[in-house]
Amino acid sequence: MPSSANWGARLTAWNRRLHYYVGLYLLFFLWLFCFTGLLLNHSKWAFAEFWANRQQSDREVAIAGVPPGGDLEQAREIARQAGLHGEIEWTRTRANAERLEFRVSRPGHIAEVKADFERGRAAIHRIELNAWGVTRILHTFTGVRMGDERNERDWGMTQAWAFSMDALAAGLIFLTLSSLYMWWRRSEKRRAGAIALACGAASCGWFVVGLRWFA
């Protein structure tokens, strides 16, 4: 039966390995979200301008055989007939059963759809963004918004992307906790490490808790 010292050594070795493995696997996701985080916080950076350079176009398509039913089913059918795919968002409350307005979006591609069932036509306004727009929107592309209960994730790829975001967050939490364990196992580094950790915790804690109570 292995001794507790053996278990400790194994845990230390595997913790270190997993720290490398998880970090390497998530590296490109991490870089993307780091970079796009900077772009979001510095929207005045001219090189990353995208909204002013957007391409817009309008067209009208015939729609037929849209089944009665829920808004989402109808919007999906209209999008299918118009050759659009992406996350469906509601742009306004439906007041007329003969009309349906929604947006179909994925990073860099936005289509505003106004369907008129009486005329059997759907007007589509398309907006195409450049690579900077695509990159930036990837950071926030979740299909849902705080305080907006009407819109839900309804596209499989949004689900996959949201899962990637969750996985990256979980991976970063694991990397943080495993680094704390690695530091703690190195007794000669404990004091200096504790100072670094305390500085980080104090400065971060000031923003998380302190500002509310003391500013």
Partner: peptide, 8 residues
Amino acid sequence: LFLAPFVL
């Protein structure tokens, strides 16, 4: 270690 709370 300094960055750990911010990453969390």
